[in-house]
């Protein structure tokens, strides 16, 4: 807190959590629900929130976050990450490992280069592997289908939370992942939701061209012909995804980490304007509800999703997420 800024590794969600929650959802539910629900479940598992008892006053008593998180430098792991038992069952060559990195709306663009490496390193460490097959990066506010005639599609897309970035900033991020490609850490590069114009521009400027453009079809199964033609001619594979554009909204992080009934009890309740109870120093003096917890504004930075599929069997052996947010006073 000394710097007034802290990075929160807001969590990890893994296959066993995720499928359990994802599959209980109706097909119409939002496509980040699986991720959010599994984050919540993982927090609950580690924090013991599920086991708390409501005391006589009807107040929920949560254990201190310090018991189940880990602080290294200015980074707080929620929960503490242990990489010992997460290796893949078979040799690296048996797998097709795809990683998707979501740069979230409102996150700082300047830090992307460092954060990209951080995110990839977490995945490599988690799976005990030296490289991944495909890295797809997803930029906020970009949708391939803006001009498309598919009303259903636009209505299911959800609110647009960010304006698309200028090409220069996309290209800047691309340089970082080209670097990872040069180093042999990432074998193929991809982007998500690029329409024809953007894809063309990227193909034009990129030193390592994208091998994949991942698009969300939302039941329409109508791909703009010019995008299809461009992808074919430049050997860019058009893959399907079903992720929503902002997988981790700010309010959700607050709720997940907050003091509510399903929260992990890490973050203090946000202060209302003119709220006199708000402390100016670090930990909050609460109205008797919680003990130590973090205070400040939380800003989600990135989410990384990884999937390891056994190549010749089509079986998903491992899947999970890491997410990061920043806390500022």
């Amino acid at each position: 807190m000394a710097t007034g800024e802290e990075e929160l590794d807001v969590g990890q969600a893994k296959k066993e959590d995720e499928f359990g929650s994802l599959l209980r959802l109706s097909p119409k539910s939002k496509s980040n629900a699986e991720f959010i629900t599994s984050l919540r479940a993982n927090f609950a598992d580690h924090s013991g929130v599920q086991d708390v008892h409501v005391n006589g006053d009807g107040e929920v008593k949560k254990p201190s976050y310090k018991a189940w998180t880990k602080k290294t430098g200015d980074m707080l792991e929620i929960p503490a990450i242990d990489f010992t038992n997460s290796a893949l069952q078979e040799e690296r060559e048996q797998y097709d490992i795809t990683v998707k990195l979501f740069y979230l709306p409102g996150a700082s663009i300047e830090k992307r280069a460092t954060e990209t490496r951080e995110a990839i390193q977490l995945v490599l460490k988690e799976l005990h592997i030296p490289s991944i097959d495909l890295l797809i990066v997803s930029f906020p506010g970009i949708y391939f289908d803006e001009q498309e005639d598919c009303p259903d599609k636009l209505s299911t897309r959800g609110p647009v939370e960010a304006d698309p970035e200028p090409l220069e900033s996309l290209l800047e991020a691309w340089k970082t992942i080209e670097q990872l490609h040069d180093e042999g850490i990432v074998l193929k590069l991809g982007i998500a939701e690029f329409g024809k114009e953007r894809l063309e521009a990227l193909l034009d400027k990129a030193r390592v061209p994208p091998a994949v453009d991942q698009i969300n079809l939302r039941d329409c199964c109508s791909v703009p012909k010019d995008l299809m033609a461009l992808a074919k001619s430049k050997k860019v594979e058009l893959l399907v995804h079903n992720d929503c554009s902002n997988v981790l909204p700010r309010g959700t992080v607050r709720e997940l980490l907050g003091q509510g009934p399903d929260g992990a009890g890490v973050l203090a309740e946000p202060s209302k304007a003119g709220d006199k109870r708000k402390s100016l120093h670090g930990e909050e003096q609460t109205n008797g509800r919680s003990h130590d917890c973090l205070v400040g504004d939380v800003q989600p930075q990135w989410v990384v999703k990884y999937t390891a599929v056994v190549r010749n069997r089509g079986v998903i052996e491992n899947k999970g997420y890491f997410a990061a947010a920043e806390l500022t006073d």
Binding site: K14, E16, N42, H46, D51, P79, D82
Partner: peptide, 16 residues
Amino acid sequence: PLPRRSGRTNGTASPR
């Protein structure tokens, strides 16, 4: 039909 959540997440001994 879904698997029981294992409680084992990320290898650490779970609170359970």
